[in-house]
Design a protein around this nucleic acid. Structure first.
Lengths: 343, 343
DNA sequence: TTGTAAGCGTTATCAA
DNA sequence: TTGATAACGCTTACAA
């Protein structure tokens, strides 16, 4: 392996000054083509690799994006939830061609302390900006970051003065309701998500709105918290003595759950009791979770545009870091309804 | 927000020299405690945040670890496979407390060109070392990297002169065979993984070895490629006219598949044909894939120590970057057999 | 125990 | 169109 080469070595070999090398290699307009070609050739032949650390210091930018995600959502790490890893995938895909890389920064809580440690990521130039996931509603973090003028983009939450990317659920939910209705379901049960999340609120709002257009004879809500257990318990309540589905002459019922994990719990209960899906009850999930792939019959659900959300967030963030696009905006990307065998 | 503060500002405010500040803040032994405390206090009060870019240049280290993973394994990105994202999770967890962060570097192919672009990641100081996943057997990449003296650790592959972390499958496979045998299965079918991977070879070796200890009346192998489709096709062949399971008086059969994805395909076929698991056929998977969580009955499988593998790889790599531990070693971490309802 | 000053390898300003 | 040269903010000999 060649010893560590710097611009100086190339300059000497090419018979020009270091700054000329620098300009040639970074495509400056000032240098004539032939000089550029010559220098390129020399650099290539010698195997010169510019030192990124030096460049970063010189321009005071890290060319990194901080991917900020909450710790402690489950026993395992957050990256094991496909929601996060898919968004990360989209981010990496968008960052790479723009010369950025993505670093991962878990955060503990949503305290003021957390806000300042997130701000530090940028202040210390570990990243040029942040993409922040999993914030609950009313979190102090966006405000604090704004005050510190840290560039950031939220995913799955929003703030009036900040950039954000969210999932537009209305059209898919409207389509889902129409489809369910056409299958002559008469009763709809909605198992809600954890109330502290913006996503959950968005979904509930979209559903209620869509119900005006496609009303059901009977509509009920049940609380849930996005966990498998809460889906299981919802089924338990529905099918237990005092529940909605007792009695002999049932109206045809469809259960819409705020996430696929809950649907998995719901399935589990049905499987244990021999309740047939969709013959005895229809089931619809919400976020096409990979973990639900193995369900049989296949779960009807929504395809969240997670890759696109990650990509858009990165694009917005880089624009933001580059000074353009200072108007805060909430970008909404549409999800799609996927009809499968569960209804 | 305070203007950008440097060591100089702190030095002035504390009435000492910049280098004293530097030493105090990085815990140098040379400085008396009270001076350290004083400087800490001043720095804290003023909200000083050391610039990482400058530090990195000064010490010529990025304090980053490159997480290198193959592109194009599926239509979506590689991070959407829980194998990769779980390992990444483990890596982030181990890197963080040691002051390192993890950057993600997809690679296209296993050509020589790919090897040199991986080497560049380190040469340009974008990372201090690499953790490389998904290499096929006989890849030119480890050799090329070794020649360029790039610090790296392999996961899921190995090379005689390189560090690597792999999964020890033998004990779990032995236990699985014993369990299956105790359940009075007489015939074992093994659906193999894609031959180009080291993991696949390891598994096949372990299985054959274990079969000596716990032999079956009948043992057959079938080819597979880790895809769901290939699991489905395996089932199709098994149950089709010419297959192993025709005839009326079947020996009790268990199918062991090289990954859970294939098991999912296998289940799908059985579900479509009304073949009951485990009554008519037992099924065992291999890697506790999240995507198989929804299977019913629950799939018996192996718990791969992915988090631990990621953690160990990072620890080895950092040690390597720090100059210690130059002896190449292949660290094997044991997986465990998980008996569930599928047998 | 502390200060001075020379790097680290770039970019960018200002003359030439 | 090029070449000196001064940042960038830190670490770390070497001196004091």
């Amino acid at each position: 392996m060649a010893a560590k080469l710097t611009r100086k070595d190339i300059a000497k070999a090419a018979g020009v000054s270091p700054s000329t090398v620098s300009r040639a290699l970074s495509g400056s307009k000032l240098i004539p083509e032939e000089t550029v070609a010559m220098i390129r050739e020399v650099a290539g032949r010698m195997g010169y690799r510019p030192n990124l650390l030096a460049k970063r210091l010189a321009v005071n930018r890290s060319f990194q994006i901080g991917f900020v995600l909450p710790l402690g959502l489950n026993r395992k790490g957050p990256l094991q939830m496909s929601y996060y890893s898919t968004i990360l995938d989209g981010m990496v895909g968008a960052a790479f061609p723009r010369g950025f890389s993505v670093g991962i920064h878990p955060y503990d809580s949503e305290s003021e302390g957390a806000a300042s440690s997130l701000a530090d990521i940028v202040t210390r130039r570990d990243a040029d900006g942040l993409v922040i996931l999993g914030l609950t509603q009313g979190s102090p973090i966006p405000g604090a970051l704004l005050k510190a003028s840290i560039p950031f983009v939220l995913i799955g939450s929003c703030h009036k003065k900040a950039h954000s990317v969210n999932c537009e659920q209305s059209p898919a939910i409207r389509e889902m309701l129409r489809t369910v209705k056409e299958l002559s379901y008469e009763r709809l049960i909605y198992v809600k998500g954890a109330a502290q999340y913006y996503d959950a609120a968005l979904q509930e709002g979209s559903l209620k709105e869509a119900l005006k257009e496609t009303p059901f004879k009977s509509f009920h809500e049940m609380d849930g918290d996005y966990s498998r257990t809460s889906g299981y318990k919802a089924a338990e309540r529905l099918f237990s003595e005092g529940g909605l589905l007792r009695g002999k002459r049932l109206p045809k019922t469809c259960v819409f759950l705020a996430c696929d994990r809950m649907a998995m719990g719901f399935y589990r209960f049905c499987q244990e009791r021999g309740i047939r899906i969709p013959d005895e009850v229809g089931v619809v999930g919400s976020d096409r979770d990979d973990a639900a792939q193995g369900l049989h019959p296949e779960l009807s659900t929504m395809r969240q545009p997670r890759l696109e959300m990650g990509r858009s967030a990165v694009d917005m963030l880089i624009d933001l870091c580059e000074g353009s696009d200072p108007e805060p905006k909430d970008m909404m990307i549409e999800e799609r309804f996927l009809k499968r065998g569960s209804i």
